[in-house]
Computed example of a mutant assay.
Amino acid sequence: MSRPPLPIGTWGSISTKVIKTDKNGKPVKHQSQTKFRDHDGHVRQVSAVGTSKTGAENALKKKLQDRARTNQSGELTAMHKVNHLLEVWEKRFGSLVADGTRSPTSLDTYRRALKNHVRPAFGAALSRYPRRRADSSQRCQRSPAIEPDCSCQA
C-alpha cells in the first residue's frame, strides 16, 4: 500500500546538510530542506540556510509556517465539503438575482444543473481536490455562470 499524500499546507521531514566549510573544515553554512504541499496541490521543495544546523532548521520552519498561512482566508477551508462551496456560490448568485443584475431563470437553471449533475459527482472534502480545481468554481473563467460578478466579457 502506498504512503498517503501530504495534506495541503503541510510538510515532510526536514533534512539538513553542510553547504560551506572554512579552511579548517569547520561547518559555517547549513541548508535545511523539505517537501511542502502547496495550496494548489503540488508538492514543492523548500529550503533555507543558516550559520548552524538549528539556525537553518528554524529559518526553514519559519518559512514553512508563513507559506502555510497564505491563501487561508475566506469562507472555505480544505475541510469543507464541495457541497458547501456550491452553497456559498448559490448565495452569491442569489444576491445578484435580488439586486436585479442576474435573471432568476438563470439561477433556476444553475440550481437544476447542480442538483442533477454536480452534487451527485462530488461531496468529498475540498482537500481531496487540488486547490486550482476548487478555486475554478469561484474564479472567473470568462463565464458569468461561474463568476456572477465577473467584469470580463466572454
Rank of each mutant, 00 (worst) to 15 (best):
I8P: 07
G9F: 02
G12P: 05
T16D: 09
V18W: 03
V18E: 01
V18Y: 07
I19C: 06
T21M: 03
D22E: 06
K26M: 11
K29N: 04
H30W: 07
Q31W: 10
T34P: 06
R37V: 10
D40N: 14
G41R: 15
H42W: 14
H42S: 14
V43R: 10
A48E: 06
V49I: 08
V49A: 12
V49G: 07
T51W: 04
S52I: 09
E57A: 11
A59F: 08
A59Q: 10
L60Q: 01
K61Y: 04
K62Q: 15
K63N: 00
Q65W: 01
D66V: 12
R69P: 01
T70D: 11
Q72K: 13
S73A: 05
S73H: 07
A78Y: 09
A78V: 13
M79R: 12
H80G: 02
H80Q: 12
V82L: 13
L85A: 08
W89F: 08
R92Q: 06
F93V: 03
F93Q: 01
G94D: 04
S95P: 04
L96D: 08
D99E: 15
G100C: 04
P104R: 12
T105E: 05
S106F: 00
L107N: 02
T109Q: 00
Y110T: 02
R112Y: 00
R112N: 08
A113Q: 04
A113L: 00
L114F: 02
K115R: 11
N116D: 05
H117F: 02
H117P: 02
V118L: 01
P120G: 00
F122A: 03
L126H: 01
R131L: 11
R131N: 13
R132G: 10
A134F: 04
S136W: 10
Q138Y: 08
C140R: 02
C140T: 08
P148H: 05
D149R: 07
D149S: 14
C150N: 02
C152Q: 06
C152L: 13
Q153P: 07
A154C: 14
A154N: 15
